[in-house]
Design a protein around this nucleic acid. Structure first.
Lengths: 261, 261
DNA sequence: GAGTGGTCTAGACCACGCT
DNA sequence: GCGTGGTCTAGACCACTCA
Protein backbone atom coordinates (compact mmCIF):
# COMPACT_ATOMS: atom_id res chain seq x y z
CA UNK A 1 0.00 0.00 0.00
CA UNK A 2 2.58 2.47 1.04
CA UNK A 3 4.90 1.02 -1.55
CA UNK A 4 5.05 3.23 -4.59
CA UNK A 5 5.37 1.56 -7.96
CA UNK A 6 3.99 -1.70 -6.66
CA UNK A 7 1.06 -1.67 -9.05
CA UNK A 8 1.60 -2.62 -12.65
CA UNK A 9 2.38 0.27 -14.94
CA UNK A 10 -0.89 1.05 -16.61
CA UNK A 11 -4.42 -0.12 -16.06
CA UNK A 12 -6.29 -0.46 -19.33
CA UNK A 13 -9.11 2.01 -19.58
CA UNK A 14 -9.48 2.71 -15.87
CA UNK A 15 -11.97 5.14 -14.49
CA UNK A 16 -12.36 6.54 -17.96
CA UNK A 17 -15.27 4.27 -18.79
CA UNK A 18 -17.33 5.74 -16.02
CA UNK A 19 -16.45 9.29 -16.89
CA UNK A 20 -19.33 11.10 -18.46
CA UNK A 21 -18.31 14.01 -20.53
CA UNK A 22 -20.93 16.66 -21.01
CA UNK A 23 -20.66 17.92 -24.57
CA UNK A 24 -22.93 20.74 -25.59
CA UNK A 25 -23.27 21.01 -29.32
CA UNK A 26 -25.29 24.18 -28.94
CA UNK A 27 -22.47 25.96 -27.21
CA UNK A 28 -20.22 28.29 -29.17
CA UNK A 29 -17.29 26.60 -27.41
CA UNK A 30 -15.72 24.11 -29.83
CA UNK A 31 -16.35 20.46 -29.04
CA UNK A 32 -12.67 19.60 -29.04
CA UNK A 33 -12.09 22.33 -26.51
CA UNK A 34 -14.94 21.20 -24.28
CA UNK A 35 -13.50 17.70 -24.30
CA UNK A 36 -9.94 18.86 -23.70
CA UNK A 37 -11.08 20.97 -20.78
CA UNK A 38 -12.93 18.10 -19.16
CA UNK A 39 -10.07 15.69 -19.67
CA UNK A 40 -7.77 18.23 -18.09
CA UNK A 41 -10.04 18.53 -15.09
CA UNK A 42 -10.23 14.77 -14.74
CA UNK A 43 -6.46 14.68 -14.65
CA UNK A 44 -6.18 17.52 -12.19
CA UNK A 45 -8.74 15.95 -9.90
CA UNK A 46 -6.94 12.64 -10.04
CA UNK A 47 -9.82 10.83 -11.72
CA UNK A 48 -7.32 10.01 -14.41
CA UNK A 49 -4.20 9.03 -12.53
CA UNK A 50 -0.67 9.30 -13.92
CA UNK A 51 0.16 6.34 -16.10
CA UNK A 52 -3.47 5.59 -16.90
CA UNK A 53 -4.17 4.76 -20.49
CA UNK A 54 -6.84 6.77 -22.17
CA UNK A 55 -8.23 4.02 -24.34
CA UNK A 56 -7.97 4.17 -28.08
CA UNK A 57 -9.18 7.14 -30.00
CA UNK A 58 -11.71 5.32 -32.11
CA UNK A 59 -13.62 3.82 -29.20
CA UNK A 60 -13.50 7.17 -27.47
CA UNK A 61 -14.91 8.95 -30.48
CA UNK A 62 -17.73 6.42 -30.78
CA UNK A 63 -18.55 6.61 -27.08
CA UNK A 64 -18.62 10.39 -27.22
CA UNK A 65 -20.44 10.63 -30.50
CA UNK A 66 -17.61 12.60 -32.04
CA UNK A 67 -15.44 12.01 -35.05
CA UNK A 68 -11.95 10.75 -34.52
CA UNK A 69 -10.23 13.93 -35.76
CA UNK A 70 -12.17 15.94 -33.20
CA UNK A 71 -11.12 13.64 -30.39
CA UNK A 72 -7.56 13.76 -31.65
CA UNK A 73 -7.65 17.53 -31.63
CA UNK A 74 -8.72 17.52 -28.01
CA UNK A 75 -5.99 15.09 -27.03
CA UNK A 76 -3.47 17.03 -29.04
CA UNK A 77 -3.96 20.20 -27.04
CA UNK A 78 -3.26 18.29 -23.84
CA UNK A 79 -0.21 16.65 -25.36
CA UNK A 80 1.07 20.11 -26.16
CA UNK A 81 0.42 21.17 -22.60
CA UNK A 82 2.51 18.24 -21.43
CA UNK A 83 -0.32 16.44 -19.64
CA UNK A 84 -0.56 13.46 -21.98
CA UNK A 85 1.93 11.38 -23.91
CA UNK A 86 1.10 9.48 -27.06
CA UNK A 87 2.99 6.37 -28.09
CA UNK A 88 2.45 4.49 -31.29
CA UNK A 89 1.27 0.97 -30.80
CA UNK A 90 0.80 1.62 -27.10
CA UNK A 91 -1.73 4.30 -26.45
CA UNK A 92 -2.19 7.67 -24.86
CA UNK A 93 -1.38 7.97 -21.18
CA UNK A 94 -1.39 10.55 -18.48
CA UNK A 95 2.08 11.85 -17.73
CA UNK A 96 3.51 10.52 -14.52
CA UNK A 97 2.78 13.29 -12.04
CA UNK A 98 5.33 16.04 -11.45
CA UNK A 99 4.39 17.92 -14.58
CA UNK A 100 1.28 19.73 -13.66
CA UNK A 101 0.49 23.17 -12.50
CA UNK A 102 2.91 25.81 -13.63
CA UNK A 103 2.83 24.71 -17.21
CA UNK A 104 2.53 27.93 -19.12
CA UNK A 105 5.69 29.61 -20.16
CA UNK A 106 5.74 32.07 -17.34
CA UNK A 107 8.20 34.87 -16.80
CA UNK A 108 5.99 36.83 -19.10
CA UNK A 109 2.97 35.19 -17.58
CA UNK A 110 4.30 35.53 -14.09
CA UNK A 111 4.22 39.20 -14.62
CA UNK A 112 0.98 39.09 -16.53
CA UNK A 113 -0.79 37.33 -13.72
CA UNK A 114 0.99 39.16 -10.99
CA UNK A 115 0.24 42.44 -12.66
CA UNK A 116 -3.38 41.38 -12.84
CA UNK A 117 -4.07 41.22 -9.19
CA UNK A 118 -1.78 39.63 -6.61
CA UNK A 119 1.03 41.94 -5.62
CA UNK A 120 0.75 45.66 -5.28
CA UNK A 121 2.26 48.02 -7.77
CA UNK A 122 3.23 51.62 -7.22
CA UNK A 123 3.63 53.85 -10.24
CA UNK A 124 6.70 56.01 -9.70
CA UNK A 125 6.91 57.77 -13.04
CA UNK A 126 4.48 58.00 -15.94
CA UNK A 127 5.45 60.53 -18.58
CA UNK A 128 6.82 60.96 -22.08
CA UNK A 129 10.54 61.34 -22.64
CA UNK A 130 12.85 61.39 -25.64
CA UNK A 131 14.09 57.93 -26.55
CA UNK A 132 17.67 57.09 -25.68
CA UNK A 133 19.71 55.04 -28.11
CA UNK A 134 18.89 51.62 -26.69
CA UNK A 135 15.20 52.40 -26.28
CA UNK A 136 15.02 53.75 -29.82
CA UNK A 137 16.66 50.64 -31.17
CA UNK A 138 14.35 48.32 -29.27
CA UNK A 139 11.18 50.14 -30.30
CA UNK A 140 12.30 50.87 -33.86
CA UNK A 141 11.82 54.62 -33.52
CA UNK A 142 14.31 57.40 -34.25
CA UNK A 143 16.61 58.33 -31.40
CA UNK A 144 15.17 61.25 -29.50
CA UNK A 145 11.58 60.53 -30.54
CA UNK A 146 8.97 60.83 -27.82
CA UNK A 147 8.17 57.61 -26.02
CA UNK A 148 6.16 56.83 -22.93
CA UNK A 149 8.20 56.02 -19.85
CA UNK A 150 6.64 54.00 -17.09
CA UNK A 151 8.47 53.30 -13.88
CA UNK A 152 6.90 51.06 -11.28
CA UNK A 153 7.84 49.50 -7.99
CA UNK A 154 6.34 46.12 -7.28
CA UNK A 155 5.78 44.91 -3.74
CA UNK A 156 4.60 41.76 -2.06
CA UNK A 157 3.76 41.65 1.62
CA UNK A 158 4.71 45.29 1.84
CA UNK A 159 8.27 44.56 0.71
CA UNK A 160 9.71 45.86 -2.55
CA UNK A 161 10.51 43.07 -4.99
CA UNK A 162 11.19 44.64 -8.31
CA UNK A 163 11.85 47.89 -10.07
CA UNK A 164 10.16 47.92 -13.47
CA UNK A 165 11.04 50.41 -16.14
CA UNK A 166 9.01 50.24 -19.36
CA UNK A 167 9.02 52.18 -22.60
CA UNK A 168 6.18 52.26 -25.12
CA UNK A 169 5.71 54.02 -28.44
CA UNK A 170 3.99 57.36 -27.88
CA UNK A 171 0.27 57.36 -28.53
CA UNK A 172 -0.08 53.60 -28.37
CA UNK A 173 -2.60 53.80 -25.57
CA UNK A 174 -3.59 55.97 -22.63
CA UNK A 175 -1.67 55.00 -19.52
CA UNK A 176 -3.75 55.89 -16.52
CA UNK A 177 -1.63 55.47 -13.41
CA UNK A 178 -4.54 54.43 -11.23
CA UNK A 179 -5.63 51.71 -13.59
CA UNK A 180 -2.02 50.61 -13.95
CA UNK A 181 -1.75 50.02 -10.24
CA UNK A 182 -4.82 47.83 -10.19
CA UNK A 183 -4.86 46.24 -13.61
CA UNK A 184 -1.34 45.75 -14.88
CA UNK A 185 0.32 46.82 -18.09
CA UNK A 186 -0.27 43.70 -20.18
CA UNK A 187 -3.93 43.53 -19.37
CA UNK A 188 -4.28 47.15 -20.37
CA UNK A 189 -2.56 46.44 -23.66
CA UNK A 190 -4.91 43.57 -24.35
CA UNK A 191 -8.05 45.52 -23.57
CA UNK A 192 -6.74 48.27 -25.84
CA UNK A 193 -6.93 45.76 -28.67
CA UNK A 194 -3.22 45.09 -28.85
CA UNK A 195 -2.64 41.36 -29.16
CA UNK A 196 0.79 40.33 -28.07
CA UNK A 197 2.51 37.78 -30.20
CA UNK A 198 6.01 37.23 -28.91
CA UNK A 199 8.72 38.68 -26.73
CA UNK A 200 12.47 38.50 -26.56
CA UNK A 201 13.99 38.32 -23.12
CA UNK A 202 17.40 38.47 -21.59
CA UNK A 203 17.95 37.50 -17.99
CA UNK A 204 21.18 38.40 -16.27
CA UNK A 205 22.65 39.39 -12.94
CA UNK A 206 24.77 42.19 -11.56
CA UNK A 207 25.39 44.15 -8.39
CA UNK A 208 22.94 46.84 -7.43
CA UNK A 209 23.87 50.49 -7.60
CA UNK A 210 23.43 52.60 -4.50
CA UNK A 211 20.19 54.09 -5.81
CA UNK A 212 18.73 50.76 -6.84
CA UNK A 213 19.64 49.25 -3.52
CA UNK A 214 17.94 52.07 -1.68
CA UNK A 215 14.76 51.66 -3.66
CA UNK A 216 14.71 47.92 -3.14
CA UNK A 217 15.50 48.14 0.53
CA UNK A 218 18.78 46.32 0.09
CA UNK A 219 22.42 47.13 0.69
CA UNK A 220 24.58 48.53 -2.05
CA UNK A 221 26.33 45.82 -3.99
CA UNK A 222 23.81 43.03 -3.46
CA UNK A 223 23.24 40.73 -6.36
CA UNK A 224 20.12 41.56 -8.38
CA UNK A 225 18.44 39.77 -11.24
CA UNK A 226 18.04 41.82 -14.38
CA UNK A 227 15.69 41.33 -17.24
CA UNK A 228 15.29 43.16 -20.52
CA UNK A 229 12.31 42.42 -22.65
CA UNK A 230 10.95 43.59 -25.96
CA UNK A 231 7.39 42.55 -26.75
CA UNK A 232 5.94 42.42 -30.26
CA UNK A 233 2.38 42.43 -31.48
CA UNK A 234 0.75 40.39 -34.21
CA UNK A 235 2.31 42.38 -37.00
CA UNK A 236 5.78 42.13 -35.52
CA UNK A 237 6.00 45.75 -34.44
CA UNK A 238 7.60 46.32 -31.04
CA UNK A 239 5.04 47.58 -28.57
CA UNK A 240 7.00 47.58 -25.35
CA UNK A 241 10.54 47.57 -24.09
CA UNK A 242 11.31 46.98 -20.46
CA UNK A 243 14.30 46.96 -18.17
CA UNK A 244 13.56 45.25 -14.89
CA UNK A 245 15.53 44.68 -11.74
CA UNK A 246 14.53 42.00 -9.27
CA UNK A 247 15.62 41.57 -5.70
CA UNK A 248 17.42 38.25 -5.81
CA UNK A 249 16.80 37.57 -2.15
CA UNK A 250 13.06 37.64 -2.71
CA UNK A 251 12.49 36.64 -6.29
CA UNK A 252 13.55 34.05 -8.85
CA UNK A 253 12.28 33.09 -12.26
CA UNK A 254 10.56 29.79 -12.02
CA UNK A 255 9.23 27.97 -15.05
CA UNK A 256 8.68 24.77 -16.86
CA UNK A 257 10.04 23.79 -20.22
CA UNK A 258 8.52 21.27 -22.56
CA UNK A 259 10.89 19.42 -24.83
CA UNK A 260 9.45 19.24 -28.30
CA UNK A 261 10.36 16.15 -30.30
CA UNK B 1 11.00 54.23 -51.63
CA UNK B 2 12.98 54.79 -48.50
CA UNK B 3 9.75 55.50 -46.70
CA UNK B 4 8.75 52.53 -44.62
CA UNK B 5 5.09 51.67 -44.51
CA UNK B 6 4.43 53.51 -47.73
CA UNK B 7 3.23 50.40 -49.50
CA UNK B 8 -0.17 49.07 -48.73
CA UNK B 9 -0.17 46.49 -46.00
CA UNK B 10 -0.26 43.21 -47.82
CA UNK B 11 0.07 42.17 -51.40
CA UNK B 12 -2.45 39.49 -52.29
CA UNK B 13 -0.74 36.24 -53.17
CA UNK B 14 2.67 37.65 -53.99
CA UNK B 15 5.52 35.44 -55.04
CA UNK B 16 3.61 32.49 -53.73
CA UNK B 17 2.06 31.75 -57.10
CA UNK B 18 5.42 31.18 -58.64
CA UNK B 19 6.65 29.05 -55.78
CA UNK B 20 6.85 25.44 -56.74
CA UNK B 21 6.73 23.11 -53.81
CA UNK B 22 8.24 19.71 -54.36
CA UNK B 23 6.09 17.18 -52.58
CA UNK B 24 7.23 13.59 -52.62
CA UNK B 25 4.43 11.19 -51.83
CA UNK B 26 6.85 8.31 -51.82
CA UNK B 27 8.89 9.80 -49.02
CA UNK B 28 8.32 8.61 -45.47
CA UNK B 29 8.34 12.28 -44.46
CA UNK B 30 4.73 13.39 -43.96
CA UNK B 31 3.34 15.68 -46.64
CA UNK B 32 2.33 18.33 -44.15
CA UNK B 33 5.86 18.36 -42.84
CA UNK B 34 7.41 18.63 -46.28
CA UNK B 35 5.15 21.58 -47.01
CA UNK B 36 5.82 23.25 -43.68
CA UNK B 37 9.55 22.89 -44.18
CA UNK B 38 9.43 24.45 -47.62
CA UNK B 39 7.23 27.30 -46.49
CA UNK B 40 9.63 27.95 -43.67
CA UNK B 41 12.55 28.07 -46.07
CA UNK B 42 10.68 30.43 -48.34
CA UNK B 43 10.16 32.72 -45.38
CA UNK B 44 13.75 32.49 -44.23
CA UNK B 45 15.04 33.21 -47.71
CA UNK B 46 12.76 36.20 -48.01
CA UNK B 47 10.76 34.73 -50.89
CA UNK B 48 7.77 35.21 -48.66
CA UNK B 49 8.25 38.64 -47.15
CA UNK B 50 6.81 39.76 -43.82
CA UNK B 51 3.23 40.86 -44.23
CA UNK B 52 2.67 38.78 -47.34
CA UNK B 53 -0.59 36.93 -47.47
CA UNK B 54 -0.39 33.24 -48.12
CA UNK B 55 -3.56 32.97 -50.19
CA UNK B 56 -6.51 31.02 -48.95
CA UNK B 57 -6.15 27.46 -47.84
CA UNK B 58 -8.55 25.96 -50.33
CA UNK B 59 -6.81 27.35 -53.39
CA UNK B 60 -3.51 26.31 -51.92
CA UNK B 61 -4.68 22.78 -51.35
CA UNK B 62 -5.98 22.54 -54.91
CA UNK B 63 -2.79 23.96 -56.36
CA UNK B 64 -0.70 21.52 -54.37
CA UNK B 65 -2.93 18.54 -54.90
CA UNK B 66 -3.42 18.14 -51.16
CA UNK B 67 -6.49 18.10 -48.99
CA UNK B 68 -7.29 21.17 -47.00
CA UNK B 69 -6.66 19.57 -43.59
CA UNK B 70 -3.18 18.61 -44.70
CA UNK B 71 -2.42 22.14 -45.80
CA UNK B 72 -3.87 23.45 -42.56
CA UNK B 73 -1.66 21.11 -40.59
CA UNK B 74 1.41 22.44 -42.36
CA UNK B 75 0.39 26.03 -41.74
CA UNK B 76 -0.46 25.23 -38.15
CA UNK B 77 3.05 24.10 -37.32
CA UNK B 78 4.42 27.40 -38.60
CA UNK B 79 1.82 29.35 -36.66
CA UNK B 80 2.99 27.55 -33.55
CA UNK B 81 6.55 28.45 -34.38
CA UNK B 82 5.49 32.07 -34.58
CA UNK B 83 6.31 32.49 -38.26
CA UNK B 84 2.75 32.91 -39.50
CA UNK B 85 -0.37 34.59 -38.16
CA UNK B 86 -3.88 33.59 -39.09
CA UNK B 87 -6.75 36.05 -39.03
CA UNK B 88 -10.32 35.19 -39.69
CA UNK B 89 -11.79 36.92 -42.65
CA UNK B 90 -8.37 38.21 -43.61
CA UNK B 91 -5.97 35.42 -44.31
CA UNK B 92 -2.68 33.96 -43.25
CA UNK B 93 0.32 36.21 -43.35
CA UNK B 94 3.99 36.11 -42.60
CA UNK B 95 4.83 37.71 -39.29
CA UNK B 96 6.46 41.09 -39.64
CA UNK B 97 10.13 40.26 -39.28
CA UNK B 98 11.79 40.44 -35.87
CA UNK B 99 10.54 37.04 -34.85
CA UNK B 100 12.76 34.63 -36.62
CA UNK B 101 15.76 32.65 -35.64
CA UNK B 102 16.03 31.95 -31.97
CA UNK B 103 12.53 30.62 -31.80
CA UNK B 104 12.96 27.45 -29.80
CA UNK B 105 12.59 27.66 -26.09
CA UNK B 106 16.28 27.79 -25.33
CA UNK B 107 17.89 27.87 -21.93
CA UNK B 108 17.59 24.15 -22.05
CA UNK B 109 18.42 24.21 -25.72
CA UNK B 110 21.16 26.70 -25.26
CA UNK B 111 22.84 24.18 -23.13
CA UNK B 112 21.84 21.31 -25.35
CA UNK B 113 23.43 22.90 -28.36
CA UNK B 114 26.34 24.31 -26.49
CA UNK B 115 27.02 20.99 -24.89
CA UNK B 116 26.91 19.41 -28.32
CA UNK B 117 29.84 21.14 -29.85
CA UNK B 118 30.61 24.83 -29.49
CA UNK B 119 32.22 25.64 -26.18
CA UNK B 120 34.65 23.40 -24.39
CA UNK B 121 33.72 21.46 -21.30
CA UNK B 122 36.06 20.13 -18.65
CA UNK B 123 34.84 17.33 -16.41
CA UNK B 124 35.98 18.08 -12.89
CA UNK B 125 34.28 15.28 -10.99
CA UNK B 126 32.48 12.17 -12.17
CA UNK B 127 31.65 9.73 -9.39
CA UNK B 128 28.85 8.33 -7.29
CA UNK B 129 27.98 9.92 -3.99
CA UNK B 130 25.20 9.53 -1.42
CA UNK B 131 22.28 11.85 -2.15
CA UNK B 132 21.90 14.89 0.06
CA UNK B 133 18.42 15.97 1.12
CA UNK B 134 17.77 18.34 -1.77
CA UNK B 135 19.16 15.98 -4.37
CA UNK B 136 17.12 13.11 -2.96
CA UNK B 137 13.97 15.19 -3.09
CA UNK B 138 14.58 16.31 -6.64
CA UNK B 139 15.35 12.83 -7.96
CA UNK B 140 12.72 11.07 -5.86
CA UNK B 141 15.20 8.71 -4.24
CA UNK B 142 15.78 8.05 -0.53
CA UNK B 143 18.20 10.37 1.18
CA UNK B 144 21.65 8.83 1.23
CA UNK B 145 21.01 6.63 -1.81
CA UNK B 146 23.80 6.47 -4.34
CA UNK B 147 23.55 8.94 -7.18
CA UNK B 148 25.93 9.98 -9.91
CA UNK B 149 27.60 13.32 -9.43
CA UNK B 150 28.93 15.19 -12.40
CA UNK B 151 30.78 18.44 -12.06
CA UNK B 152 31.86 20.32 -15.13
CA UNK B 153 33.44 23.61 -15.97
CA UNK B 154 32.34 25.20 -19.20
CA UNK B 155 34.57 27.57 -21.09
CA UNK B 156 34.36 29.76 -24.16
CA UNK B 157 37.38 31.39 -25.70
CA UNK B 158 39.47 29.83 -22.98
CA UNK B 159 37.53 31.68 -20.29
CA UNK B 160 35.40 29.91 -17.69
CA UNK B 161 31.73 30.70 -18.07
CA UNK B 162 29.83 28.31 -15.90
CA UNK B 163 30.17 25.73 -13.18
CA UNK B 164 27.74 22.89 -13.77
CA UNK B 165 26.88 20.38 -11.09
CA UNK B 166 24.55 17.56 -12.09
CA UNK B 167 23.06 14.59 -10.28
CA UNK B 168 21.57 11.53 -11.96
CA UNK B 169 19.97 8.38 -10.61
CA UNK B 170 22.62 5.66 -10.26
CA UNK B 171 22.73 3.16 -13.10
CA UNK B 172 20.78 5.33 -15.49
CA UNK B 173 23.58 5.31 -18.02
CA UNK B 174 27.33 5.06 -18.28
CA UNK B 175 28.96 8.46 -17.98
CA UNK B 176 32.23 8.40 -19.81
CA UNK B 177 34.13 11.58 -19.03
CA UNK B 178 35.77 11.75 -22.43
CA UNK B 179 32.50 11.48 -24.28
CA UNK B 180 30.98 14.01 -21.93
CA UNK B 181 33.57 16.57 -22.88
CA UNK B 182 32.90 16.15 -26.55
CA UNK B 183 29.23 15.21 -26.70
CA UNK B 184 27.32 16.84 -23.88
CA UNK B 185 25.07 15.37 -21.24
CA UNK B 186 21.73 15.77 -22.97
CA UNK B 187 22.90 14.22 -26.17
CA UNK B 188 24.23 11.26 -24.22
CA UNK B 189 20.88 10.87 -22.50
CA UNK B 190 19.09 10.88 -25.82
CA UNK B 191 21.37 8.32 -27.42
CA UNK B 192 20.89 6.16 -24.34
CA UNK B 193 17.21 6.01 -25.27
CA UNK B 194 16.03 8.44 -22.62
CA UNK B 195 13.56 10.85 -24.15
CA UNK B 196 13.25 14.05 -22.23
CA UNK B 197 9.77 15.39 -21.76
CA UNK B 198 9.94 18.45 -19.56
CA UNK B 199 12.06 20.33 -17.10
CA UNK B 200 11.45 22.66 -14.22
CA UNK B 201 13.86 25.54 -13.87
CA UNK B 202 14.59 28.25 -11.39
CA UNK B 203 16.83 31.15 -12.29
CA UNK B 204 18.15 33.40 -9.58
CA UNK B 205 21.14 35.50 -8.58
CA UNK B 206 23.48 35.77 -5.64
CA UNK B 207 27.03 36.70 -4.76
CA UNK B 208 29.75 34.20 -5.46
CA UNK B 209 31.54 32.43 -2.64
CA UNK B 210 35.32 32.59 -2.51
CA UNK B 211 35.68 29.13 -4.00
CA UNK B 212 33.19 29.74 -6.78
CA UNK B 213 34.85 33.01 -7.62
CA UNK B 214 38.24 31.34 -7.83
CA UNK B 215 36.96 28.68 -10.16
CA UNK B 216 35.25 31.20 -12.39
CA UNK B 217 38.19 33.56 -12.46
CA UNK B 218 36.22 36.29 -10.73
CA UNK B 219 36.51 38.22 -7.51
CA UNK B 220 34.75 37.07 -4.39
CA UNK B 221 31.34 38.66 -4.07
CA UNK B 222 30.63 39.18 -7.75
CA UNK B 223 27.08 38.64 -8.84
CA UNK B 224 26.49 35.26 -10.44
CA UNK B 225 23.45 33.78 -12.14
CA UNK B 226 22.19 30.57 -10.61
CA UNK B 227 19.99 27.95 -12.15
CA UNK B 228 18.50 24.80 -10.72
CA UNK B 229 16.86 22.37 -13.07
CA UNK B 230 15.11 19.04 -12.75
CA UNK B 231 14.49 17.20 -15.99
CA UNK B 232 11.84 14.52 -16.43
CA UNK B 233 11.46 11.79 -19.00
CA UNK B 234 8.35 10.59 -20.81
CA UNK B 235 7.01 8.75 -17.82
CA UNK B 236 7.47 11.71 -15.51
CA UNK B 237 10.38 10.24 -13.60
CA UNK B 238 13.16 12.68 -12.77
CA UNK B 239 16.31 11.82 -14.69
CA UNK B 240 18.56 14.71 -13.85
CA UNK B 241 18.95 17.44 -11.30
CA UNK B 242 21.39 20.26 -11.84
CA UNK B 243 22.72 23.24 -9.95
CA UNK B 244 24.49 25.65 -12.21
CA UNK B 245 26.36 28.88 -11.65
CA UNK B 246 27.00 31.30 -14.48
CA UNK B 247 29.42 34.15 -14.64
CA UNK B 248 27.11 37.12 -15.01
CA UNK B 249 29.77 39.21 -16.70
CA UNK B 250 30.02 36.69 -19.52
CA UNK B 251 26.65 35.01 -19.75
CA UNK B 252 22.95 35.77 -19.78
CA UNK B 253 19.87 33.73 -20.56
CA UNK B 254 18.44 34.90 -23.82
CA UNK B 255 15.21 33.55 -25.21
CA UNK B 256 12.03 34.17 -27.04
CA UNK B 257 8.53 33.69 -25.73
CA UNK B 258 5.45 33.06 -27.81
CA UNK B 259 2.18 34.30 -26.39
CA UNK B 260 -0.46 31.65 -26.82
CA UNK B 261 -3.99 32.95 -27.32
C1' DG C 1 -1.22 -10.64 -35.76
C1' DA C 2 -3.77 -7.49 -33.20
C1' DG C 3 -4.06 -2.96 -31.60
C1' DT C 4 -2.44 1.58 -31.41
C1' DG C 5 -1.51 6.30 -33.00
C1' DG C 6 0.10 8.93 -37.52
C1' DT C 7 -1.34 10.52 -41.78
C1' DC C 8 -4.56 11.74 -45.40
C1' DT C 9 -8.87 12.56 -48.04
C1' DA C 10 -13.16 15.15 -49.73
C1' DG C 11 -16.43 16.99 -48.57
C1' DA C 12 -19.70 20.34 -45.11
C1' DC C 13 -21.36 24.27 -42.33
C1' DC C 14 -20.34 28.18 -39.35
C1' DA C 15 -18.27 32.68 -37.38
C1' DC C 16 -15.91 36.41 -38.23
C1' DG C 17 -13.68 40.70 -40.66
C1' DC C 18 -14.02 43.51 -44.23
C1' DT C 19 -16.35 46.81 -47.63
C1' DG D 1 -22.41 39.94 -49.09
C1' DC D 2 -18.27 37.87 -49.79
C1' DG D 3 -14.09 35.66 -48.55
C1' DT D 4 -11.46 34.02 -44.90
C1' DG D 5 -10.12 30.77 -41.36
C1' DG D 6 -12.45 27.63 -37.56
C1' DT D 7 -14.73 23.49 -36.80
C1' DC D 8 -16.50 18.94 -37.82
C1' DT D 9 -17.55 14.52 -40.19
C1' DA D 10 -16.78 9.52 -41.82
C1' DG D 11 -14.32 7.17 -43.71
C1' DA D 12 -9.17 5.11 -45.38
C1' DC D 13 -4.43 3.21 -45.26
C1' DC D 14 0.07 2.98 -43.05
C1' DA D 15 3.80 2.42 -39.32
C1' DC D 16 4.84 1.13 -35.19
C1' DT D 17 4.75 -1.71 -30.70
C1' DC D 18 3.92 -5.66 -28.26
C1' DA D 19 2.67 -10.26 -27.19
Amino acid sequence: MAKPGAMSRAATAPALDSLDFALDRGSPVPLYYQLARQLEEAIEHGVLAPGNLLGNEIDLSIRLGLSRPTVRQAIQTLVEKGLLVRRRGVGTQVVHSQVKRPLELSSLYDDLEAAGQGPATRVVRNETVPASADVAAALSVPEGAEVMLLERLRLTHGQPVALLCNYLPAGLLALDSDRLESTGLYRMLRTAGITLHSARQTIGARRATAEEAARLDEQEGTAVLTMQRTAFDDTGRPVEYGTHIYRASRYAFDFQLLVRP
